[in-house]
């Protein structure tokens, strides 16, 4: 993304692309985009909650909830590790930003690489989780098989759609992080660097934030 700015703001000493509101244009755009994405993920999570409530009600009515609750598929151990990874990556991200602002480029590279590695581990962990769930009988289909019994439920469909789109966002975030890593390496002197880092950081924290929601609403409750 690039942005034009006012001639009268191009004076030396000003941060790049600061406009009439006193903020960076790209940062403002990204925050608005995050606002929009909030509604996107809320719609996906809401869909999941509505259908899970229905499955739960049906299983309760047939007295099979304790045995066949699709939540049994979701192992808390792996997910807790994934949540911890994403949370840690948020910390490394913000440390990378602090380093970039302090122009400590060696530190910056270390923390950004750590973020990239943690992000990639999350994606790999999710891929492992998905293949595991598929093998166990939870598929992208309007029924699941648990211990030999087939249950009509949209749990698999809503779960994979929701977490899949989150995973896609994490993947795009990792690609963006890598791009920023190389950009800063190529142009270490550019005064735009802290803002480039801040932007990818905002996106990255947002992706973490969505996982905070999914972790609580889908895995724990």
């Amino acid at each position: 993304m690039s942005a034009t700015s006012h001639a009268h703001h191009d004076e030396a000493g000003q941060a790049p692309l600061v406009g009439s509101l006193g903020v960076d244009s790209r940062k403002l755009g990204l925050w608005a985009f995050i606002g929009s994405e909030t509604l996107f993920f809320t719609a996906l999570i809401t869909t999941h909650l509505i259908f899970y409530a229905r499955t739960k009600a049906e299983l309760t009515a047939s007295g099979m909830l304790a045995h066949l609750d699709p939540k049994h598929f979701l192992g808390i151990n792996l997910t807790s590790v994934l949540a911890a990874i994403l949370l840690a990556s948020s910390l490394t991200m913000v440390l990378a930003l602090a380093a970039s602002k302090a122009k400590e480029w060696q530190k910056f590279r270390f923390w950004l690489l750590a973020t990239i590695i943690l992000g990639s581990s999350f994606v790999l962990g999710q891929a492992y989780e998905f293949s595991h769930l598929y093998a166990e009988g939870l598929k992208l289909a309007p029924q699941f098989v648990y211990e030999g019994e087939t249950v009509k439920s949209l749990f698999g469909v809503t779960f994979f759609t929701m977490t899949g789109f989150h995973g896609l966002h994490v993947t795009l975030g990792v690609i963006w992080l890598i791009a920023v890593y190389f950009k800063v390496r190529k142009f270490p002197a550019s005064p735009e660097n802290p803002m480039d880092v801040e932007l990818v950081g905002l996106y990255w924290h947002f992706v973490d934030l969505v996982w905070v929601g999914i972790f609580t609403l889908i895995y724990l409750i």
Partner: peptide, 9 residues
């Protein structure tokens, strides 16, 4: 949004 908020004369 960004134009109107941030690009005004």
């Amino acid at each position: 949004i960004v134009t109107v908020l941030n690009m005004r004369a």
